[in-house]
Amino acid sequence: MTTLTLSTITLVVPDYDAGIEFYRDRIGFELVEDTDLGNGKRWVVVAPDCGGHLLLAKAMGAEQRAAIGNQTGGRVAFFLETDSFTETYDRFARAGVKFLEQPREEPYGKVVVFSDPFGNRWDLIEPKAAE
C-alpha cells in the first residue's frame, strides 16, 4: 500500500517577513526555505521541530486579503502538540504570543488556544499519555 504524508499547508499572511517574525522568532519554528520567485513573490516555508510545514503565502488581491486570519471561519485551524505544556506556554507568553483563554485540562490533555498576529487560531496541546 502506498504511504501518503500531508507535508505542507498554505497559510495566507499579509507579509512574508511578518510571518517569519512570528513563526520563527516568537514561537520557534525553523525557517526551512525563503526563496525569491520574482515579481514580489517568495517561497517561504517554516516548520516546527515535530514535523509538518507551513507555506507562508503573501495575500494577493482583495479575496486573499479578506481570508487572512479567517481561513477556517473562526475555528481553530492548527493543533500544535508539545511534550512540556508549561515550558512551551511560558516561552510563548514571554515572546508575546496572544492567548485567547486560560490553559485548561480536557480529557485528551492540557490545552490553550492562542492566535497568531493575523487572527489564525491554534491549539497548544500536551496530550495525555496513553494508558
Results as ranks from 00 to 15, higher is better:
1 M>P: 06
1 M>W: 10
1 M>D: 10
4 L>A: 11
5 T>M: 11
6 L>S: 11
8 T>I: 15
8 T>H: 09
10 T>C: 14
10 T>R: 13
12 V>P: 04
12 V>H: 08
13 V>Q: 05
15 D>C: 15
17 D>H: 09
20 I>H: 03
20 I>L: 08
20 I>S: 04
21 E>P: 00
21 E>K: 05
22 F>T: 04
24 R>P: 02
24 R>S: 07
26 R>S: 11
27 I>D: 08
27 I>W: 11
28 G>K: 01
28 G>Y: 06
29 F>S: 00
29 F>G: 00
29 F>M: 10
32 V>F: 07
32 V>K: 09
32 V>N: 05
33 E>P: 00
33 E>W: 09
34 D>Q: 12
35 T>P: 00
36 D>I: 06
39 N>Q: 08
39 N>W: 07
43 W>C: 00
45 V>K: 03
46 V>W: 01
47 A>K: 01
47 A>V: 01
47 A>C: 03
47 A>N: 00
48 P>M: 07
49 D>A: 10
49 D>R: 08
50 C>A: 13
52 G>R: 02
52 G>M: 08
53 H>E: 10
53 H>A: 09
56 L>E: 01
56 L>A: 06
56 L>Y: 02
56 L>K: 03
56 L>R: 04
58 K>D: 03
59 A>C: 12
60 M>E: 14
61 G>P: 09
61 G>T: 07
61 G>Y: 15
64 Q>C: 12
66 A>G: 10
68 I>N: 12
69 G>Q: 12
70 N>G: 15
74 G>W: 15
74 G>L: 13
75 R>W: 14
75 R>Y: 14
76 V>R: 04
77 A>R: 10
77 A>W: 10
77 A>V: 08
78 F>T: 07
79 F>Q: 03
80 L>Q: 09
80 L>C: 08
81 E>I: 07
82 T>Y: 04
85 F>Q: 01
86 T>L: 10
86 T>W: 07
86 T>I: 09
87 E>V: 08
91 R>I: 04
92 F>G: 05
92 F>E: 07
93 A>C: 07
93 A>K: 13
94 R>Q: 15
95 A>L: 11
95 A>V: 08
97 V>Y: 04
99 F>Q: 01
100 L>N: 05
101 E>Y: 04
102 Q>G: 03
103 P>D: 02
103 P>K: 02
103 P>H: 04
107 P>G: 12
108 Y>V: 10
110 K>S: 13
111 V>Q: 11
112 V>K: 06
112 V>Y: 05
112 V>N: 04
113 V>A: 13
113 V>F: 09
114 F>T: 02
114 F>I: 01
115 S>E: 15
115 S>H: 07
116 D>Y: 13
116 D>V: 10
117 P>H: 09
117 P>R: 04
119 G>A: 12
119 G>F: 14
120 N>R: 02
120 N>A: 12
120 N>V: 06
122 W>C: 06
122 W>S: 04
122 W>K: 00
124 L>C: 06
124 L>A: 04
125 I>G: 02
125 I>Y: 07
126 E>M: 08
130 A>G: 10
131 E>D: 14
131 E>I: 14
